[in-house]
Design a binder for these strands. Sequence first.
DNA 1: TTGAAAGCGCTAACAC
DNA 2: GTGTTAGCGCTTTCAA
Lengths: 350, 350
Amino acid sequence: MKAKDRMKKVSISDVAREAGVSVGTVSAVINGKSSVKPSTREKVTDAIRTLNFRPQGRAQNLKLNNDRRSIGLIIKQLDNPFYTEVAEGVKEYAKSHGYTLFITTSENDHEQEEQITNLFTTKDINGAIIAPVLDGDAEIDHLFRLKLLNFPFVLLEEVPGIRANVVSIDNTQVTKDLVRYLIQSGHSRIIHFAGPLNAPHALERIDGFKMAFSESHLVFDESLIIPAGGRFQHGFNTGLEYFKDKTAADFPLSVVCFNDQIALGLISALRKLKIKVPEQVSIVGYDNIELGEFGVVPLTTISPPKRELGQKAAEILIENIESDQILPIRNITLSAEITVRESTQALKTG
Amino acid sequence: MKAKDRMKKVSISDVAREAGVSVGTVSAVINGKSSVKPSTREKVTDAIRTLNFRPQGRAQNLKLNNDRRSIGLIIKQLDNPFYTEVAEGVKEYAKSHGYTLFITTSENDHEQEEQITNLFTTKDINGAIIAPVLDGDAEIDHLFRLKLLNFPFVLLEEVPGIRANVVSIDNTQVTKDLVRYLIQSGHSRIIHFAGPLNAPHALERIDGFKMAFSESHLVFDESLIIPAGGRFQHGFNTGLEYFKDKTAADFPLSVVCFNDQIALGLISALRKLKIKVPEQVSIVGYDNIELGEFGVVPLTTISPPKRELGQKAAEILIENIESDQILPIRNITLSAEITVRESTQALKTG
DNA sequence: TTGAAAGCGCTAACAC
DNA sequence: GTGTTAGCGCTTTCAA
């Protein structure tokens, strides 16, 4: 019975029939026109309720070319301060230009990314900013489809195989700069607490780490890369494990961390082990999250322009949305800065 | 010229004319049908590109009753771990039931909330979970409109004046329980670092704080409520200011904080002032964010069931979406727990 | 104050 | 392979 009822969706004419009026009248009620006699209105609202009628937005807006401005954003996860701050940059710019922002998460899953982009076109979202899933073989059919449909989009990372607007941060370069800075200030034992190895950001930082070594007198060794993860607790656990047997002879040592959460977790672990930061171990984070500045040891970190990243992407996107011609492709790389606080120590003046 | 061009939207028949084919053929190309001759396909894609044609999803899906499942969520801000974890609960449930989640932020602004709900109905999102804006006079016309349209929605807080599904957390009760617990464990000097005073959550906690006092031997005084804010830095600054002139005679003292960020900021401030936690000052947070557990002093806090809140709201929403009849209204209150760690000290065994 | 009917932009069936 | 056309569910004239 139920299943059968659901077979056929209730439409405005069903409501009209139930209420004993015409579809025009039902439409007038739905749209709050004052021209409807109260008693008629009541008959109609009753019918709407008994039939559980839900008007279709697409049909309502087919005639009215009511294109409320909106853009979509696909990030990987919500609990990553990096992405949420990028999202805030997007939101800021979007809002000031009259666009509503829809945020979605792909959870680094291709299928979800594809499904979301389809939904964006289906629902007449005007454009999208995408932090693309990049694991293994990039499936990019859905991006080509967006191009075919002239659906404007901006990527937050380069995707091999497709020409598209990209706004990104030069992770490799800044990590390299950072390690060079450590070397110049006298550090010779430098290790890296790396992020999730399937994340492009993690790989880019490893690359930068290696590059700095190869340009210096130091010799790189795979054992210098310690997989840690992305969360506070990962930094804590990895730190505990890595440093538990270390002795005075192993110091000074410096640790370049995948992000600030890892760095803060590591600092907590070292406190537990009674190892001094920065006297024995120098620590550098990445992202410059708010908590890094106010912790026990104010964190030296890399500050990527997160908000600006979002704003710039939104700017380019909206330019494309509002242009009646197809615009040339843009590829913008933003550079990050090193913010030196108290979790690192210079062993000599560079 | 440009402005004039934009007046009239490009439609599929414009493309057909430009390419010298019929609309059926253009449609076939758009939908990737293999029945189109390569040379024709190219003529069409060229025309699509030169006219910058963007097909309207609503028209495409009017015939195909292609209702891809989706739900919307309106939270207040993205940089609040409370809401993002609620959002994760929603996402989890939604995903497991085949729904895509669109997240939006109202920034506690009525106008945005209204605009977003309109967009949800316009774009045939199937239902919404809303953390409602509640400042001053609640404008709830848009919620009544949702009811008129039988658009399913669930509120994350009670809104005066409307009967609707609500899933919420009993902030008042748990704050009261917490303060009673502090009193029972021997504290008599208890203050509250309150949240933003326009936020309902902040007011609910103040209420709970007061209620615990009135049920005890302690006397409440407005000076016990110190407005702090919601962020780490607010806790830090307010803490510095409040404790700068305190002496041994003022301790032991305990501080109930609006949230964990405030509590962590306060701990940092107290370290700076060389005031001992918990020996001199006991501190309690709210939310149980990940960092609280691993900081210098593991934080005693209130643990609201954030994920469950989101899941439950999603469950009720999807039930309503999939029902062909209007379901009875649900109102569910979840209770929070107190997680005791090391930032509080019992002055006597309760 | 209400009803009848044209038409929004597209898809899909069918004809050629 | 491609063109023609009915019709998706609504809104909006225009009559009555």
